[in-house]
């Protein structure tokens, strides 16, 4: 039982990080129908910025805030510099622009920060907490807590605020939204900025556990994409569910069966889900968007 709980805690922590990346995919997809392959690199930039701002003597909390803001700015910049100028390009061209952007961001990170791995201390210490035979580091609680907080905030934003509703309207039908007087250009900048912000938040909260490196975004981007499609593109609930399923599958496979094929099992699972639910777990059925 203690073992099961241990795997559960591990899986949920990893799953939350995947979920946060998936939420970023979701935000951008909803606004622009683009799959942003640079989402993982926002996470990297968040983590790396936090580490390096801290190392220059800035207090931790300020460094975290700055890192998150850098992520947000980068997201908005990606839209302004890469997506908007491409105007009427199809989804696949836009995806390749994001692939190019990902390589570019990674290249810049390589030049500025080098190829090393970096860590930073947990927000509230690194002394593990033991409970019911389960061990977890305090940072895991931060990861889980922040994820819950962000999901709640996003839900409130989209259901309770005018701006949030405007974003949703834009995602359903950009032309109609424009006619209704919504500044869709601003909405797009906002969505990309939010995605960058979210990525950077994921980066700073996970760095104390997973470390960071200029190439960490490759794997995170892939897993985040998987999680968001698994849950159903564009669905926030789906993104979180997808992330958690992915994390739990990995932990349970590693814990109970073998690690050799844990990643492969995750992909088999995805294929099966898609075969029976062609729009993911929570995706809208029958709507062809691409």
């Amino acid at each position: 039982m203690a073992e099961f709980l241990q795997f559960l805690v591990t899986g949920i922590t990893i799953g939350c990080t995947f979920a946060l990346v998936a939420l970023g995919f979701c935000l951008v997809y909803n606004a622009s129908h683009v799959i942003n392959f640079a989402q993982g690199d926002f996470v990297m930039v968040g983590g790396m910025s936090a580490v390096f701002i801290m190392s220059s003597g800035v207090p931790m909390w300020l460094a975290l805030v700055l890192a998150v803001l850098i992520g947000g700015a980068l997201g908005a910049l990606l839209y302004k510099g890469g997506i908007q100028p491409a105007k009427n390009a199809d989804a696949i061209q836009l995806i390749i622009i994001t692939v190019g952007a990902a390589l570019f961001i990674r290249g810049v990170a390589h030049v500025i920060w080098g190829t090393g791995y970096f860590s930073m201390p947990g927000f509230t210490g690194d002394t593990p907490i033991r409970f019911l035979g389960v061990v977890m580091v305090p940072q895991s609680l931060w990861v889980i807590g922040v994820t819950v907080g962000i999901v709640t905030a996003l839900a409130l934003f989209f259901t309770r605020t005018r701006l949030g509703k405007a974003v949703l309207a834009t995602s359903y039908n950009r032309d109609a939204a424009k006619l209704m007087g919504i500044d869709t250009g601003m909405i797009l900048v906002l969505s990309f900025g939010l995605a960058g912000l979210l990525g950077a938040v994921a980066g700073v909260i996970m760095t104390p556990i997973t470390f960071t490196n200029y190439e960490i975004g490759v794997m995170l981007g892939l897993k985040g994409f998987v999680a968001s499609v698994l849950g159903g593109l564009g669905s926030f609930v789906g993104a979180v569910a997808g992330g958690l399923i992915l994390g739990l599958t990995e932990a349970m496979m590693a814990g109970y069966i073998s690690s050799d094929y844990k990643d492969a099992v995750a992909f088999v699972l995805i294929l099966l889900i898609l075969f029976f639910m062609p729009s993911g777990l929570f995706g809208q059925r029958g709507v062809e968007r691409v």
């Binding site: 890469g82 692939v99 190019g100 290249g107």
Partner: peptide, 9 residues
Amino acid sequence: WLVYGLILM
């Protein structure tokens, strides 16, 4: 890689 990404974009 930086240049490669830029050219792609």
